[in-house]
Design a protein around this nucleic acid. Structure first.
Lengths: 125, 125
DNA sequence: TGCTGATATGCAGGCGGATCGATGCTCCTG
DNA sequence: CAGGAGCATCGATCCGCCTGCATATCAGCA
């Protein structure tokens, strides 16, 4: 799984809804599962939460290792996975790498999981 | 991970939002990750989709093995995981076991993932 | 009661992933 | 330019999980 971020974009376009009327295809299921796999980890959920609640909505690696209780390589690893999933964006300023979350990405996932009833016509939001 | 279904219920009550104002705790992150792990599998996503799109919104194991291309024990295994996660409910009628999905469960997850903007009320917990 | 069909469970192989220590790379600073 | 700090990558280890085969369990039926 190299670049799931594009996979998320591809799912957003045709507006695939796993819980809509028709069964999803194997490829779509694998794409969505890939993004969900990135979310389905306690450390990564806490990372997203920590970054979102940071002062400017952004945080660098050195700010995240301590609260998580994980080593710096491990934190970098998780941030990499979240970034490749399209959930985080990375901006390097000087020696620091600042991460902030991509709001539309998570909103898209929430949308995909929302039962069809609530998804009125098409592109909500 | 024995009973994630109750975990989802516990998360629903205090209305934990991983992307709300405050960072989530380790235990909450693990509970949510547990439910997301149940979702983060192509076979299980397709199972949910197949069951939802079935005639009466329900399906038995024998109807699901063929479309998935997986063995019957494997399908039973996945259905078990989804059921323990609180995403499916099982009803045994005669020799068959009918599965249907719990709408509120997935709606809850989608809600938890929805960015804080849309969730006006700030439950201080 | 004995048989058959539908499901569930046990067991084992194999793969992917989470983690850490060591190391390399880049940029700032003196 | 040399040293140091912040991060990413590499290699290795350990654990969990997906899968199938074999088997057990249960309900209906002759």
């Amino acid at each position: 799984m190299e670049n799931v971020g594009t996979a998320l974009a591809e799912m957003t376009m045709p507006q695939i809804s796993p819980l809509a009327g028709e069964p999803i295809e194997r490829a779509d299921a694998e794409r969505l599962a890939g993004v969900l796999k990135a979310l389905a980890d306690p450390a990564r959920l806490r990372l997203l939460s920590l970054i979102q609640s940071a002062p400017e909505g952004e945080a660098c690696v050195c700010d995240l290792t301590a609260p998580l209780g994980l080593s710096q390589p491990t934190v970098s690893h998780h941030l990499r996975i979240l970034t490749e999933a399209g959930l985080l964006e990375r901006e390097k300023r000087g020696v620091w790498a600042y991460y902030r979350l991509v709001p539309s990405a998570i909103a898209t996932i929430a949308d995909l999981l929302t039962p069809p009833r609530k998804r009125a016509t098409k592109k909500a939001r």
